[in-house]
Design a protein around this nucleic acid. Sequence first.
DNA 1: CTTTGGATCGTCT
DNA 2: GACGATCCAAAGG
Length: 209
Amino acid sequence: VSPRAARLRPVPARLLTGDPLDVAPRLLNNLLVRGDRVVRIIEVEAYRGMEDPASHAYRGPTKRNATMFGPPGRLYVYFTYGMHWCANVVCRPEGVAGAVLLRAAAPIAGLETMWSARPAAKRERDLCNGPAKLCQALGVTGELDGADLLRPGGPISLCTDGMAPPPEPAFGPRVGISVAAEHPWRFWVAGDPNVSAGPRGSAPMSPGC
DNA sequence: CTTTGGATCGTCT
DNA sequence: GACGATCCAAAGG
């Protein structure tokens, strides 16, 4: 991070609207702002709605996935494993499901708040290096399901400080799914220490490795 | 460093 | 009734 405060501006809505496969890598290096807490998005996965057997929206709209069928630029938050929250950016027009799962981020500001929100974290990179850890660090729960990420001054927003997404992000198979696991629809900033370790210690594999 | 098992409950079949 | 878009502590190399 640069020593002097960078100027933040909201991410343009058009960058968030489109095929999740295109939007996902574009979100890398953008910022999530949640009160005093700021993180940089380092790892994401694309979920392609009704065309994607691994998507919560595959079998059509339900009460849980309703936000995914809503307007783009909203946060889709879901509860899983009986104890964890995970968050997505909705990225298709209203009526069409599609979203990008936020899997990991780099802490930028508000570290004190994040440390208290994540007592289990030992190293700085443990604060946000997983989809549920990220939500815990930022205090994201079901209350934020449907929040408008493009509204400045909202409870949580998506901003840029001018850092472009990586021109050639690393990519590989999505983590933790039991169907459609063959597609390389996970994207991350190559070499960043905050990339999630993946389940059972399976190391991320970039195309260059 | 890696591997293992357990926690815990909303959602959809 | 089964199963998660997961995390963590503990134990072993």
